[in-house]
Each structure stands twice: as C-alpha cells, then as structure tokens.
C-alpha cells in the first residue's frame, strides 16, 4: 500500500471521476471498489441486517475516519476490524468515508424491549441528545445511534466503561452524570433499547 505522492494524486483523480487509463498496478482502487469489499460483513452499501455488525452507511466522514484510524492504531477495541483497518492508507480511509457518508441508513426495525425503550427515551433526552441529535440520527463527528444494532451498542458502552475505548470529553461528563444519577452502568441499557428501536 506504499504510494508515492504521484500515485496519491492519481487516487484523487479517481475520486474526481477523471481517471484515464492508469496502469492498474499503480492506481489506488476507486472508493466504490474498496467500499464494496465491506458489504460481506456490513451489508450492501454499508447497511447491516444484523444481529450485531453495525451499519456504516451514512456515518459522518469525520466519525468514519476517526474510527478507522483508532482501529488501525489499536486505540479502539475490536475483534476483527483492527486487523482489517491496518490495510488502508489515510487516503483510502478518506475515500471510503466520503463514499459511505452518502449511503442511506436502512432501519427495518429491531426487536427491543418497549418498556425499556420508553424509559430510555426520557434518559436520552437528558444525557445524549445534545450531541446525538434528531433521535440519534445525526450529530457532528459522532456515530449514528438510531436503528444501530443493539449488541453493537452494548459492546460499545461496555468498551467505553471498561477502558478499552476512549470516550470524548463531553461524552465522559455525560456518562459519569448518568451513572451517578441513576446508579451505575445498568442505566445505559434502556437508552440503548430506545436508540436501537428508532425507525
């Protein structure tokens, strides 16, 4: 994956759709070509059918890039993503981020506990919505929570709380407040049911 700056330029040309007949061995693969290899685990165009692997469609490019770089550096807990992320250059990651940002997040609906989801909705309003806006569908530089796979959301919270993934400063403040007010890490569960169930 070592590329000279000339080859990086070629890569940009591919992104811009102005590619000529570059010799295959020297050009970066197109964003679509690279992104399509993700579908085997993450679903066609990045929308997962679950039960656990997250949807990566419609993630903000910033969040996608941050995630991949953290996986690559081993800063974020993973089972398989760390091994895969190591294969991609910063240019590759940026190209895929831009690609997936434009893809729709399909929300066919997951089975969640309705009572928990109702309780979670109120908690989410207080502890999450300032960053995870519009029912967790959007947010600057943060993951999409709405309709995300429930086991994945649970893994993420466990990893944050167990020190295997570093929370953002604002996030840490909110996490601490939630656990202090509601008595520990179980307080996350209703919130996760709420977000997982958003259609």
């Amino acid at each position: 994956m070592m590329k000279s700056s000339f080859h990086r330029l070629l890569g940009v040309a591919v992104v811009a759709g102005t590619i000529g007949l570059a010799p295959a061995a020297f050009a970066q693969a197109s964003p679509e070509m690279m992104a399509d290899t993700c579908a085997g685990c993450h679903g066609t165009d990045g929308s997962s059918n679950g039960p656990a692997t997250p949807t990566i469609a419609s993630l903000s490019a910033d969040y996608f890039i941050l995630s991949m770089k953290d996986y690559k550096a081993g800063k974020r807990q993973s089972t398989v993503m760390g091994r895969i992320a190591k294969a991609y250059s910063d240019d590759d990651i940026a190209a895929m981020a831009k690609h997936f940002q434009t893809k729709p997040f399909h929300r066919p609906g997951q089975k969640v506990d309705a009572a928990k989801a109702k309780e979670g909705k109120a908690l989410a309003k207080k502890y999450c919505e300032s960053c995870h806006e519009d029912e967790g569908k959007v947010g600057e530089g943060v993951g999409v929570l709405a309709g995300q796979m429930l086991p994945y959301l649970q893994y993420s919270i466990a990893d944050f709380l167990d020190g295997k993934r570093e929370p953002e400063k604002r996030q840490k403040v909110k996490f601490d407040a939630l656990m202090k007010d509601k008595g520990g890490r179980e307080a996350f569960e209703p919130i996760l049911h709420y977000y997982a169930g958003v259609k």
Binding site: G40, C41, G43, T44, N49, G50, P51, A52, T53, T79
Partner: peptide, 24 residues
C-alpha cells in the same frame, strides 16, 4: 489470547456476516 468476551462477540459477528453476505 483473545478474551472470552471477544470469542463470544465473534459468534454474533459470524451470524451477522452470514445474513449480510447472503443478502448481498
């Protein structure tokens, strides 16, 4: 030396892989 938790997660990721790749 992966943890039991990671081995367990890989089962759910295997099942997810099956659903996603067959749909693809």
């Amino acid at each position: 030396d992966a943890s039991d938790e990671d081995r367990k997660r890989e089962v759910l990721y295997a099942q997810s892989w099956f659903r996603n790749i067959t749909a693809d």
